[in-house]
Structure formats: C-alpha cells, structure tokens
Design a protein around this nucleic acid. Structure first.
Length: 461
DNA sequence: GATGCCGGGCT
DNA sequence: AGCCCGGCATC
C-alpha cells in the first residue's frame, strides 16, 4: 500500500511540480496582454489584433452606443454628444488621446464643448444601416432590440453594433461550450499553446470588446476567462446553478428565479405598466439564462455585473446579444428592493475567482482541436463512447429537450459478452493524441482523458 | 514496442 | 466523481 501510495504521490508531485509562471505571481487577474505576449506558437492561426490590445482601455470600453466603432475621432467628423440633457450633433474639433477628451463644436448650440470621448459617438457610423432613427427621447437611450415591431421597445443606435455583439455572443458561446477551466489557486496555470491560441482567438474575434466589457463590469480581464480549455491540471468541479441575467443595457442584474428576473425587467426597465398587454411578455426578451458555477456569485457579488456568457440551452431569447458595454449609469446596479438578488457569498466563499460557463459538465476536458472552432458540428462520437462524452452532452440546439441520461454503457455491458471485440473498442484514430503531441515527458499537458488513459478528448478522430 | 483506451479499482 | 492503471487491441 505504501509503495502504491508513494508511487502515486510521486506521479502527482510530478504533475504538481510543473507550475508555470513565477511563484507568487498574481494568479488569475494578470493582465491579459502579458499573457498573450508570452504566447507560444499555437496550433491554429489567430489573427491577433495587436492594435486593439494597445489601445487605452478607456477607448475600448467606450460608449455603449458605438461599441467597436469608437476608436478615434477626426476633426470635422460628425458626432453626437450629450449636452444639456439632450443629444446634440456636432463636429469634432479635435480628439486628445492623452486626456481622452474630444472637443466638439455643437452645431445647434453654436458653441464648443470639451467632453470625454466616452460621451461622444459617431453620428453616422460607417456601414450603418440607417433604419433606426437616432433616439430623441430625453431619457437615456437604451438599446434597440428588434424583438417587436408593435411594442415600443427601447432603441439602440446601431444595428451594426448589434450584429457585432451578436457575433461576439455567438463566438463566446461556441467557445464557451467547452468547460471553463480555471487555473487552480496559486497560479498553477498551465499555458499550453493551444490554450493561448484559443485565448487569442477570442480576442481577435471579439476585437477585445468582450474582455473590455467584462472589465467594465468590474471583472478583471481575467486571462483564465479565455483559457476556455484544458491545461489546468486539475479541473474544478462545481455544481452549476442556473441564474437569470438581465440583458438590459447597463444593468446585468443576476437573479435566481425566472419570476424575479421578469419582475425586475418589467418593473425597472419596461416600466411597470400594470399588466399592460403591450408589455406582457416583453420582459422575456430582456433576460437570459446563464449557467453559473457554484462559486461565481461570491466574487462578483450581487451588484457586480459578471457579464456571463448566455447559455446555449436557454430559450430563443439567448439569441439576443449581450448588453452593450455599459456606462456607469443610474438605472442599473443597485436596487436593494429586490429580494431575489443573490446574496453576496451565497455560494462558495472560498473561490479564488468566479466564472461562468456554458452548460458543459463533462468528465473530461473538451478538445482544443482546431476543428472545434471552425465547425460546430461535432464529430459524432463512436457508438461505444459513453454518454459522458462532451460531444454528446453538448446541446447546441436552442429548443432541444434535454436528453435523458442514456444507460448506454451499462446496456452494452449487460447485453454484450465480455470483451466483445470489435464493437466495444474504438478503432484507433488517425489523429495524433496528446501523448504523441506533447510527449510523455509533458504528460501534464495532456488532456485529462489521456492522462487517465481514456479516449482522448482533445484530438478527436 | 508504442500507442490508444476500456474496464475497473482506489480514494 | 476524480484519479489511476492493468490489460488488451491496434498500429
């Protein structure tokens, strides 16, 4: 027994000994850029947008109304700005990057003002489809969502932005279908090439928007948030809790109950117009179901906006894009009246960091194989694979009912004679497996399944 | 012999 | 459930 134990401990210590990153390095909240700079060659090409990374955060997180377009203002450019409680159009006089200020000549008021770049947005975004007139309301301009043509839905300024966000949401969704593997406490992160590639890929695809979004919400730009896959040697396993997140711009409330979220949306955003049929079901469009790792709430707290990735398992409303990068505005975060808000620390308090993830609770880690990212049609698992396979457990269809847990494995065992040769064993695939790719000396970089001598989950055949 | 992974044991 | 490994199939 002792020998076995020591053997195992030895192996484990071998695993544990491979700790990347300097001892004592600040674990998950390191700046992402730093992470990416150290990126080793990755198996897939990610068009890294270096310029985006180098931009000041203030610019990136800019106004919810302009999103990605908000980069720089050129003199003479026609812009909109809030002035005197209303939206005014004007021309850019100059844009000071150092101070992040924009000097705008207001056409209507015939005066010049200097305001923060965040408060300025392009009047005519390039490529914009001019079908939504700029909002005229004196109130803050919420987002436009094409959910209803009959209902007076708050309007968003740009459809193009919405498409960007939708793309971002879809990318996040697809990437997040793999379990979020968070590096263990103490920075025992394991940065495989594939991982970094994945991270960069997200960065590139989202144009940094998502990460900045998170940062805006009070979340650190957590590198681990993009390490959507693998290498952490030990995967944290937590119960997944379903929460409902308000998608109203600059809100992002997370409630535990669907009733609560509906009530929240209705009361605070749609205006509680006493069962007006007009708004009867409108609130459905303004929340989304999110899967929250058990510890998530602790760090984010009830008022911090964790900006979760919408769950693919939720109803069609998840198609809605995530809320635009919110500005610090009044309508959101603090509404102490709603009792169903998450009590802070209601979940685990010991979590080093919080994270959200798509429903994907598997025994093994998800493949990092490049084709994962290029095709969402997962290779069908061989018939002998158990239902534990992440390939199976993933449900990408929006309305697909949950598959009942099939008792396939036991069925096979019962009905087939022991060691029924060809049917039970998967034919060896062509793809390289972790052992081949990383070598036995880098066993810690193998996917969990390979380490356990199970069917490789990273390099599917 | 090396590799992939099923089945099953241990914690 | 996570982890590990014996043992077998395949290359």
């Amino acid at each position: 027994m002792a020998s076995v134990l020591s053997r195992r401990l030895g192996k484990r210590s071998l695993l544990g000994a491979r700790v990347l990153g300097p001892p004592g390095a600040a674990p998950p909240s390191e700046p992402q850029a730093e992470l990416l700079e150290g990126a080793a060659p990755q198996p897939f090409v990610a068009s890294k947008d270096a310029s985006c990374q180098e931009q000041p955060k203030e610019v990136l997180k800019a106004p919810g109304t302009s999103g990605l377009q908000q980069v720089a203002f050129h003199p003479g450019q026609k812009v909109c700005v809030w002035y005197g409680g209303q939206e005014c159009t004007g021309l850019v006089e100059r844009h000071s990057w150092a101070e992040d200020k924009v000097t705008v000549w207001l056409l209507d008021q015939k005066l010049q003002i200097c305001c923060k770049a965040e408060e300025v947005w392009l009047a005519e975004p390039p490529g914009r489809i001019p079908q939504v007139p700029p909002p005229e309301q004196g109130t803050q301009a919420p987002a436009y969502r094409p959910v209803s043509r009959n209902i007076d839905v708050p309007k968003r300024k740009s459809d193009a932005v919405e498409m960007d966000e939708m793309m971002a949401a879809m990318v996040l969704t697809s990437l997040s279908c793999s379990p979020v593997v968070q590096s263990p406490p103490g920075g025992e992160a394991n940065f495989s090439d594939a991982l970094l590639g994945a991270g960069q890929r997200v960065q590139a695809l989202l144009g940094m928007q998502a990460s900045c979004h998170l940062t805006d919400h009070g979340f650190e730009t957590d590198p681990d948030a993009f390490l959507l896959d693998e290498p952490a040697p030990r995967k944290r396993k937590n119960s997944v809790k379903v929460m409902y997140k308000c998608l109203w711009p600059s809100c992002g409330k997370v409630l535990r109950s669907i009733v609560g979220i509906k009530r929240h949306v209705k009361a605070l955003h749609l205006g509680d117009t006493v069962d007006s049929d007009q708004f009867k079901r409108e609130e459905d469009f303004y929340y989304t179901e999110v899967q929250m790792k058990g510890e998530a709430a602790a760090a984010g707290g009830p008022t911090a906006d964790p900006a979760p990735t919408p769950s693919v398992t939720s109803p069609p409303l998840t198609i809605l894009p995530p809320p635009p990068p919110p500005k610090a505005q009044s309508s959101g975060p603090d509404h102490p009246g709603l009792e169903s808000y998450l009590p802070s620390g209601a979940l685990s308090k010991s979590a080093p960091g919080s994270f959200w993830h798509i429903q994907a609770d598997h025994a093994y880690q998800i493949p990092v194989s490049p084709h994962i990212y290029t095709s969402i049609s997962w290779a069908a698992a061989p018939s002998s694979a158990s239902s534990l396979s992440p390939v199976r457990s993933r449900s990408l269809s929006f309305s697909e009912p949950q598959q009942p847990p099939p008792a396939m494995k036991s069925h096979l065992i019962v009905t087939s004679p022991p060691r029924a040769q060809s049917t039970t064993r998967k034919a060896r695939g062509e793809a390289k497996k972790c052992r081949k790719v990383y070598g036995i000396e880098h066993r810690d970089q193998w996917c969990t399944a390979c380490r356990w001598k199970k069917a490789c989950q990273r390099f599917l055949d």
